[in-house]
Design a protein around this nucleic acid. Structure first.
Lengths: 346, 346
DNA sequence: ACTTAGCACTCTTTGATGTTGAGTGCTAAA
DNA sequence: TTTAGCACTCAACATCAAAGAGTGCTAAGT
């Protein structure tokens, strides 16, 4: 983002944005000259505002109203003006405390985090669990159910145990299944799920030549077990906080936004973009490609676990969010979660 | 419900209710005398309406408005006036077809049902999965994870496989665990989960005397495995249809209702009352104890599986629902689901 | 060359006022 | 017992004026 504003322009944009974030109403020149001691008269401010509007950073709902920042304006504000505040000790402690309890399962961490994000921000907190494909293989077990049904139990190093029922053509004895698992647990240990899938395909190619029936069965089975495109686990909290935002007083808006919340894969896609980058990322209004969400901003950060970037967390709120407060909070939360994930699972 | 209305009174209440259900607006005497050929003038209808209002079955939003039925009025209508219509062949086929695909897992049946109920009614469809306690034991397996961690996998005859991680004090070998499961699978086979819990407690008492270390370990473990008060599985579909009801144009109302939807245990409690009774049950507005839901009616029916009453399904909508259409549809769906559950799992 | 006071102008918001229409309750006649 | 007729009530709607917030422009001040 190019620096397109003079010092004065910045100050005034800053004032408009912060006033707008506080009130949600269009901001007039008088208000600024009074509340923000820029030592300028309303008239001067008006002139500058007109300039800024021309660039496209401000807009007027109607002729005789004040200005509100456009998405572009907010983007400039976030990139070139905003200096986030530091969290107080107390706030940090509050976040730390969330993860203090012993014996938190992954699922608890997720729930606590989404609720933390939502409570702090007073908007909607969201966290996406580590990607299935990034999970590290620890163990697989096959349990014989009925004649041609086998339950595959996949146990990752971290994360939720997953079951899958597999139908087989031939009947397999539990003994055979034990052999399978022993073999698989050996060759797959410590691989990420992605690599597991690759490895299985490679092994199958090898096996084609060697023609060991048991092994090829084992591989076939494991392929099925890992084939599923498991849903991403999304934890959302505080959906209803948006009811309290004056900008969402319109039924239609709420309706579409909620449909987006329901469509979890919209959220996943949106936040998956964040996982590529590093550190806090902010998506403002129309910057995201989903119409349903274009009244919202997302402040998100990837959190890591070990070396794999593993998930994303963040806050969804109206574009007029308090970026100054929420950005450092999301950041600190992401760091804390990363730390916890590391220590919990060596 | 006592018969408190004359034939004429009934006809007029019937007219008011059906008109109100159709339009959602207060109904005036003129409208009735015109549209429903009762061969009475508006003036006569007015007189009767005043009588009905006195009993408490109708009310006026304000002096110069028409009448709307009260919850009591709707209750009388449902009990003493309503004759439900029969489903057409096509509608029945539509419902049947939902369950035709082979290889539907329980979870699919649930999803399809909630969506079916919602689509047909244009309101919110809901189904509660068979109670955990009513599930029939088929198999349990213990898998050793790490030193003192064991994964218990519980496989019911019907329903979702469930995992639970158990921490133990002593380390147990996989061999020992095999012995445990063999023993447990024998003594628990075909019991309902409730009975399983009882049986385990009984066996533990016996064991205290016999002092077989392995057995008592096995029992302790299984007790832990079955201790969890698993969440009820609630499947809801079409939450957002209520946005389209004119009576929910008020933000506050939507807000509270949605909070109730979120609090799944409100829904569970509400529908659990239905499981006691037999056949279709209708809960109108303030008849339910939850304030959040007192603008809604619930049309629900238990569905069975084998001999155990096992779950509930139904439709949640505004009190001015089309009872005449939705009641038979919920009924038929409940019967169909029961049938499917029976045939799928002998 | 900036800055700013002053002013005319625009446009929303608010409240007051009147009108319309749906619906009621009562009365008296059929 | 029914119903036509009539006076009355009240929400909903439209119209209008006044207030207020804010702008843009101009001309004078620094």
């Amino acid at each position: 983002m190019v620096e397109r504003l003079s010092k004065r322009g910045k100050n005034i944009l800053q004032a408009v944005v912060s006033e707008y974030i506080a009130t949600g109403e269009p901001v007039g020149s008088r208000t600024i000259s009074k509340k923000h001691n820029l030592d300028l008269s309303a008239a001067s401010i008006r002139n500058v505002m007109a300039d800024i509007e021309e660039i496209g950073y401000l807009s007027q709902p109607h002729t005789s109203a004040g200005r509100i920042p456009t998405d572009m304006g907010l983007r400039y504000y976030v990139d070139c003006i905003l200096t986030v505040r530091k969290l107080t000790k107390k706030e940090k402690q509050n976040i730390d405390r969330t993860y203090r309890p012993q014996n938190l399962q992954l699922i608890d961490i997720m729930k606590e985090t989404s609720s933390l994000l939502s409570n702090f921000s007073q908007y909607t907190g969201i966290i996406i669990a580590p990607k299935f494909g990034n999970m590290i293989f620890e163990q697989i077990e096959f349990i014989k159910l009925r004649k041609n049904q086998i339950l595959a139990v996949f146990i990752p190093k971290v994360g939720k145990v997953r079951n899958k029922i597999i139908e087989t053509e031939e009947e397999l004895s539990q003994d055979e299944l034990h052999k399978f698992t022993k073999y698989l647990n050996e060759i797959l240990s410590d691989l990420s799920l992605k690599d597991v899938r690759k490895k299985i395909i490679n092994e199958m190619k090898k096996e084609k030549n060697m023609c060991d029936w048991l092994l090829s069965q084992a591989l076939r089975l494991s392929q099925e077990a890992f084939s599923s495109d498991m849903d991403d686990d999304v934890f959302i909290d505080g959906k209803f906080n948006i009811f309290d935002c004056p900008e969402f007083c319109d039924m239609e808006k709420v309706k579409t936004l909620f449909r987006a919340f329901e469509e979890k894969n919209i959220l996943v896609k949106l936040l998956d973009q964040v996982i590529q980058g590093e550190g806090i990322q902010i998506i403002i209004g129309t910057e995201n490609q989903f119409q349903e969400m274009q009244e919202c901003s997302i402040i998100a950060s990837p959190y890591t676990w070990g070396e794999n970037a593993s998930g994303t967390l963040g806050v969804i709120g109206p574009t007029r969010m308090n970026y100054c407060d929420i950005v450092p909070m999301v950041d600190y939360t992401a760091r804390t979660v990363s730390k916890i994930m590391d220590t919990k699972y060596q």
